[in-house]
């Protein structure tokens, strides 16, 4: 709240890494906090709510963490890819428009210019918008540390608000996902008290292969209705490859409501979050028919 009530974390050391090796070395003792766009980190530091460690590791000058590329049917987004880059990349607009559409609803242009995909993932906010379509794309997150490299599904990355499976010495290097095949359908919805510059009260991403009014291999992911981004696997199984008629949609809405876990807080009630989630899903399933 006020500065006098909370002490901003002391930064004892600052490293501006020029290469991935330097960044990994600076993180190696588990005492580093990676600084990318700073749109979450800095706001948390100033409010005294930060989880900053004593060494600030600026990774902005590490070339290996940048870039949007495609090779061998896999699209790779470097951790430093900004929301503006998601919005403007011709590769993504062409092949994964849902990412551009999500970025378009993300905060304001000033924040989009600095906020990174790696930061949105590492921050592990239940309301993080950019992670939803990435989960919908079955993305893998690539982590690096002095111990080496590992990849794991983004879907199993989050443990709670601000909590992930990442170790203290690890950095997010990139996210990767298979280039979506022909017929891929992806939508992102969010709503709040105003259409722009809004933290999600509820956000939803629905993906799958759409053909003849049926969605095959669907992924249904919600933000801000639980401690982490929430995938609704029972709902996915229910609608997988089936004709989306009124009865099935009604059943899907009911099952989905049992899979999400929204809370009451000053931004919205559990009732309203459920109503929003059902409204989004109903509209998007109807749009697939």
């Amino acid at each position: 709240m006020l500065p006098q009530n909370k002490c901003p974390p002391e930064i004892e050391d600052y490293v501006s890494a020029q290469s991935l090796a330097e960044a990994v070395a600076a993180m190696a003792d588990g005492q580093g906090s990676a600084l990318a766009g700073g749109s979450d980190l800095w706001a948390q530091k100033d409010s005294g709510n930060g989880r900053m460690r004593k060494r600030l590791v600026n990774i902005n000058r590490v070339p290996d963490l940048r870039g949007v590329s495609e090779a061998g049917g896999v699209i790779r987004l470097g951790a430093l890819t900004t929301m503006t880059e998601l919005l403007e990349s011709t590769l993504l607009r062409d092949k994964v428009p849902v990412l551009a559409k999500t970025a378009d609803r993300f905060a304001s242009s000033q924040i989009r210019n600095v906020a990174t995909i790696g930061g949105n993932i590492a921050n592990a906010s239940p309301a993080g918008d950019a992670v939803l379509p990435l989960i919908g794309l079955d993305a893998q997150v690539e982590l690096v540390s002095k111990r080496g490299k590992r990849s794991l599904p983004l879907d199993s990355f989050f443990r709670g608000p601000g909590k992930t499976v990442m170790e203290a010495d690890e950095l997010i290097a990139a996210v990767e996902f298979a280039t979506p095949p022909k017929g891929f359908h992806g939508v992102f919805c969010k709503s709040g008290p105003r259409p722009a510059l809004e933290i999600s009260v509820v956000a939803m991403c629905l993906t799958g292969i759409l053909k003849g009014g049926k969605l095959t291999g669907p992924r249904l992911v919600f933000g801000a209705v639980g401690p982490t981004p929430m995938r609704c696997v029972k709902t996915e199984a229910l609608i997988d490859g089936k004709a989306l008629d009124d009865a099935l949609i009604a059943e899907a809405l009911a099952i989905m409501a049992t899979e999400i876990a929204p809370i009451d807080d000053f931004r919205a009630s559990k009732w309203y979050r459920t109503q929003m989630a059902q409204t989004f899903l109903e509209a998007e399933l109807n749009a697939c028919r």
């Binding site: 709240m1 709040g192 008290p193 105003r194 259409p195 722009a196 510059l197 809004e198 933290i199 000053f266 931004r267």
Partner: peptide, 14 residues
């Protein structure tokens, strides 16, 4: 809600 994140003034698009 002592912040512009949670106190919603109208912005240009509205």
């Amino acid at each position: 809600n002592p912040s512009f994140r949670d106190y919603h003034v109208m912005t240009a698009p509205e």
